[in-house]
Structure formats: C-alpha cells, structure tokens
C-alpha cells in the first residue's frame, strides 16, 4: 500500500529539483548578461572620452606620439571587437596606455594645469576603477554559472536546455585592479 506513494513522491522530488535548477541557471545567465553589459557600458564611456583626451594632450606631448597612437589603436581594436576575448584585449591595452599617459603627464606641468585635462583625468580615473569592479563582478557571476553548468547533476539540465559555459573577461594581473594610482583630491593643489 505504502509503496505506491514512493514512485510518485520520487517523481515529484525530481521535478522540483529540475525546476529549481532550471530557474537558477536562467537567473545566473541573466546575471552574467547584466554584468557583461555593465562592462560594455563602461568601456563605451571610456572610449568615448579617448578622442577628447588625445586632442587635449596632443599639443603638450610632442614626444609621446607612440603612446597616443597606442590609445587610439586600442579604441579601434575595441570598435572592431566582437568576442569577449577581443573586448578584454582592447580593454587591457587601453587601460595600460591610459595609466602610462597619466604617469607621463606628471612631467608636463602645463598639461596638468589644463582645466580640460584635469576634468578628463578625474573622469577617467573613476571609469577605470568602475571597469575593474565590473570585470570582477562579471568574472564572479561567470564562475558561478560555469560551475553550475559543469557540475553533476545540474550539467544534465544545462545540456538539455543549451546552457553553455562563458569566457572570463581576462586580465593578466591582479595589480591592474587598483587602476591608475592618482590622487584626485590633491590634483588641484599641485
């Protein structure tokens, strides 16, 4: 008598687990999408500022042509990027070049006094920092998603509904996280 309930009970449990896992996968995928679009928006903001930055700096930095070209190149690279890897590559090139630019700017007192440059520097420092956090956020959501997609038994459900793993938005080193080391508040006094 009792045994007649065991099979339906088990089926219900399996169904519940199925629903739960599927919903988790969906919300994790959406979180990863949202985190990625965050990075994208910020990269857009940063690269929108690049032409302005290059124009402002050009007149002052005669000897740093290569550096400016590297920044412009990173922007072109980013405009043509379609995969996550390409986006991440452009991001990294730009981040390094902008960081160097601000470091080099220390040698140009006239440039540092330029109102427009000061504004750009502050804006870019903020954006670089946000990009670093957005990257971290994205990589974490991707790690959680990938773990669920690959682990048993959720991998069965993932395979059934075509949930794939995602690529990380890779950066080479952790030190990139601290973004450009600029003291914003003292900038005006100097």
């Amino acid at each position: 008598m009792e045994s007649t309930y065991i099979l339906p009970g088990l089926l219900i449990l399996v169904a519940l687990f199925f629903i739960y896992s599927y919903n988790r996968l969906v919300s994790m995928r959406n979180m990863a999408d949202k985190a990625y679009s965050n990075i994208d928006t910020l990269l857009q903001k940063r690269f929108d500022l690049v032409p302005n930055l290059v124009n402002t700096v050009k007149g002052y930095m005669e000897h740093e042509r290569e550096l400016l070209e590297a920044i412009t190149r990173a922007r072109t690279e980013w405009l043509n990027a379609s995969t996550i890897e390409e986006n991440a590559g452009a991001d990294q090139t730009a981040e390094r070049a902008i960081k160097t630019l601000f470091a080099v700017a220390e040698n140009y007192p006239d440039l540092k006094a330029n109102q427009n440059f000061m504004m750009l520097q502050e804006e870019l420092a903020g954006i670089e920092n946000k990009i670093a956090y957005a990257r971290q956020r994205y990589n974490r959501t991707v790690m959680a998603l990938n773990t669920m997609v690959q682990r048993f038994p959720t991998n069965l459900i993932a395979r059934l509904f075509n949930f794939g793993t995602r690529s990380y938005f890779a950066i080479e080193s952790e030190q990139a996280r601290s973004a450009p080391e600029i003291n914003l508040r003292d900038g005006e006094k100097e």
Binding site: M31, K34, A35, N38, L42, E122, E123, A125, G126, I127, N129, K130, A132, Y133, A134, Q136, R137, T141, L184, R185
Partner: peptide
C-alpha cells in the same frame, strides 16, 4: 562630489 560619487558607483557595480 565626483570623487565620492565615482567611488560609490564603483562599489554598487561590484555589488551588482
């Protein structure tokens, strides 16, 4: 307060 604003915005991104 752009400095403070940017900092808070960065962390709200980190927290999602």
């Amino acid at each position: 307060e752009p400095y403070l604003y940017n900092t808070v915005e960065a962390l709200s991104i980190a927290a999602g």
